[in-house]
Amino acid sequence: MDRSRADVLPLSAVLGRGRAEWRPGVAQADGRGPGQGLRWLGVPRPAVGAPRRPGAIGSRPRGILRAPMVDQIVEAWRTNHRINLRLIERISDAGMRCTLSTRGGRNVVRQFAHLHNVRVWHLNRRAKSLAKGARTFATYDEPDRRALVAAMSDSARRVEDLFRLASEGAPGVRTIKRGLIPYLAYFIAHESHHRGNILLTLKQCGHPVDSTTRYAIWDWDRI
């Protein structure tokens, strides 16, 4: 094949030969008509064992996977939990009772209680042995700060155990179908969603957290 020009090829024709990119609206070479085509870029793959330049496609950034993958998963989860604890510590008593709902929706403290309850729900569904003895809050419970920290710390440890056991293929423990890392992402996405809701509620109600705390929750190397 002449690599000096940009040939339009179907995916099967270029796999294993080099890089390709999608070009919308280009007629495909296999006669299927206009649509999503692939344009050959003329950049062959490096030979097996050849050194890769920094930043090259497929190169590994320095320092990645210095610890076993499961340890990094657990550390990400612990960091997420520390952010929750930092917010619980810094939100005022009046702020904990704030809500933007006009129809009985969760206030701030009940949103934190909801995070704990969802963790326990997942434990009951995917690792029943780890859920034994875990307590949940009723829908309209407003636990005090000490009870909230104790409950969330307990469920965080149990979810951490779920991650470790799932990584070992332990019987009776499972994740979502897409795997362990997507499961971690699900948990953190859910809790981050509620943290954003909480911060907006506090701001709108006139009880914002201090700027140091707002910035600290994004400093994952230090928190």
Score class of each variant (00 low, 15 high):
89 E>D: 14
93 D>I: 04
94 A>E: 11
95 G>H: 03
96 M>R: 08
97 R>M: 10
97 R>S: 11
97 R>F: 05
98 C>W: 05
98 C>P: 08
99 T>L: 13
104 G>D: 01
105 G>N: 06
105 G>C: 00
106 R>V: 13
106 R>K: 15
107 N>Y: 03
108 V>Q: 13
108 V>A: 15
109 V>I: 06
109 V>K: 05
109 V>W: 10
110 R>H: 07
110 R>S: 03
110 R>P: 00
113 A>P: 07
113 A>Y: 10
115 L>F: 02
115 L>A: 07
116 H>E: 04
116 H>A: 01
116 H>K: 13
117 N>E: 15
118 V>A: 07
118 V>T: 03
120 V>L: 07
120 V>S: 02
120 V>P: 00
120 V>G: 01
121 W>M: 05
121 W>G: 02
122 H>Q: 09
122 H>L: 05
122 H>S: 07
123 L>I: 09
123 L>V: 09
124 N>H: 07
124 N>M: 02
125 R>F: 15
125 R>I: 09
126 R>N: 02
126 R>F: 01
131 A>I: 11
132 K>D: 07
132 K>I: 15
133 G>M: 12
134 A>E: 08
134 A>G: 12
136 T>M: 05
137 F>I: 03
138 A>R: 11
138 A>S: 14
140 Y>W: 07
142 E>T: 08
142 E>W: 14
143 P>Y: 02
144 D>Q: 04
144 D>P: 00
144 D>G: 07
144 D>S: 01
146 R>C: 08
147 A>Y: 06
147 A>I: 04
148 L>R: 12
148 L>I: 00
150 A>K: 11
150 A>F: 14
152 M>G: 14
152 M>V: 13
152 M>F: 12
152 M>K: 12
153 S>T: 01
155 S>Y: 13
155 S>C: 09
155 S>D: 15
156 A>F: 09
156 A>H: 14
157 R>F: 14
158 R>N: 01
159 V>K: 15
159 V>L: 14
159 V>Q: 07
160 E>K: 14
160 E>W: 13
160 E>D: 15
160 E>A: 02
161 D>M: 12
165 L>N: 11
166 A>Y: 04
166 A>M: 01
167 S>L: 03
168 E>R: 10
169 G>M: 01
169 G>S: 02
170 A>P: 00
170 A>I: 05
171 P>S: 06
171 P>K: 06
171 P>A: 08
172 G>W: 00
172 G>I: 00
174 R>E: 01
174 R>N: 06
174 R>F: 09
175 T>E: 02
175 T>F: 11
176 I>S: 08
176 I>C: 07
178 R>Q: 15
179 G>M: 04
179 G>K: 01
180 L>C: 10
183 Y>P: 03
184 L>R: 09
184 L>V: 13
187 F>C: 09
188 I>C: 06
190 H>E: 04
194 H>I: 03
194 H>T: 10
195 R>Q: 10
195 R>P: 12
196 G>S: 09
199 L>Q: 03
